[in-house]
């Protein structure tokens, strides 16, 4: 690790002040940041420890939704009675990710901000436009089994690696962000992460000095919730493809179909056209194929990850079939 000045923040405003310093980063759980700092993928000269500024609560909101503090650990969220009862897709997604040791440290905010595990991004002696703008993309023309098939650019084909955010996307959650001036702004999780475009170094909409303070979930809905993660190893592996599904069936037709996809893009993928197609239609394999057609419109493989296109289609079939069976 490069030397850094370590300071503990005691409040949100402390944290914002540290975050606004040059070469500053905030550390909460540290499970992703320290990994990168040891490899010098991240080289902050100021490290603000926000672990003790509160923000770890999980509370009901006035509309029977839920507000999950940015510093609530993944474990605390997954075992919370209301998450288990009303937002099971969120509990399932969290439990499908990483390991208990990591989930005990990882936080809501940190998990949303975690960076890609692209091999080239994580190797400072290889080119990567995300880490080192202008150096090129090692994954294009290299090994890219983990990589994106949707929303890529000629600058970057990395994937967002997380599971939790995929569930939050399906649930229509929002990210509450404290701005450096103390004011707050709210961004739907669906809009929080960015596609790489010409600015692959930007993972999300946070500006320097901004800080996630919470994630809010809308009031629960009567629906079947599933999280499916396809992976090589049966545990402790990133998703090849994952799907979060919030599905309701009424009178033999889809009454709700909120789907989000992991492992396919630089962000949890959500395509509103899929829900629009499904809602009001009767479940059938032909319909699922149409949904997959929408999902995979414009999908492009880069060699090693070509398989993700048929895999996403097949997994979507499996998830919809399972959800319909459970919802019936």
């Amino acid at each position: 690790m490069r030397p850094f000045q370590y300071q503990r923040a005691h409040s949100i405003s402390d944290a914002s002040a540290i975050a606004a310093l040059p070469e500053a980063m905030l550390i909460a759980g540290g499970t992703n940041l320290l990994d990168m700092m040891k490899l010098q993928v991240a080289t902050p000269s100021q490290l603000g420890d926000i672990g003790r500024i509160g923000l770890d609560g999980i509370q009901d909101t006035s509309d029977r939704g839920l507000r999950i503090g940015a510093l609530a650990t993944n474990t605390a969220t997954a075992v919370h009675p209301r998450v288990r009862a009303d937002y099971p897709v969120l509990a399932r997604a969290i439990l499908a990710g990483a390991t208990q040791q990591l989930r005990n440290k990882a936080t809501t905010g940190g998990n949303l901000c975690q960076r890609t595990r692209c091999y080239y991004f994580m190797n400072v002696d290889q080119p990567c436009n995300k880490r080192d703008p202008g150096s090129g993309c090692g994954a294009i023309g290299g090994v890219n089994k983990l990589h994106a098939v949707l929303g890529t650019s000629d600058q970057c084909i990395a994937t967002y690696p997380g599971d939790m955010a995929v569930a939050l996307t399906a649930l229509g959650a929002k990210v509450v962000i404290a701005k450096s001036d103390g004011a707050e702004r709210t961004v739907p999780v669906r809009d929080f992460h960015l596609l790489p475009g010409d600015t692959p170094w930007r993972d999300n909409v946070l500006d320097q000095g901004e800080l996630i303070v919470a994630v809010t979930l809308p009031p629960p809905v009567a629906a079947t919730q599933l999280y499916r993660k396809v992976r090589e190893r049966s545990s402790y592996a990133f998703a090849l493809v994952s799907i979060a599904a919030v599905i309701a069936i009424d009178d033999g037709k889809f009454a709700r179909a909120d789907l989000a996809f992991g492992g396919l893009a630089h962000k949890p993928w959500h395509d509103p056209r899929i829900g629009e197609l499904l809602v009001g239609a009767a479940p059938s394999p032909a319909l699922y194929d149409q949904a997959a057609d929408l999902l995979l419109e414009g999908a492009e493989g880069h060699g090693d990850n070509d398989f993700k296109i048929p895999l996403a289609r097949r997994t979507l079939h499996a998830v919809l079939a399972e959800a319909v069976e459970k919802a019936a």
């Binding site: 091999y119 190797n123 983990l146 090589e232 545990s235």
Partner: peptide, 21 residues
């Protein structure tokens, strides 16, 4: 890597030895 021959998955996150499960 097919170009420079460097080992791409050089850690235990991406070289998948079996886990308990």
């Amino acid at each position: 890597d097919p170009r420079d021959g460097h080992l791409v998955n050089r850690d235990l996150a991406e070289y998948h030895v079996p886990v308990h499960r």
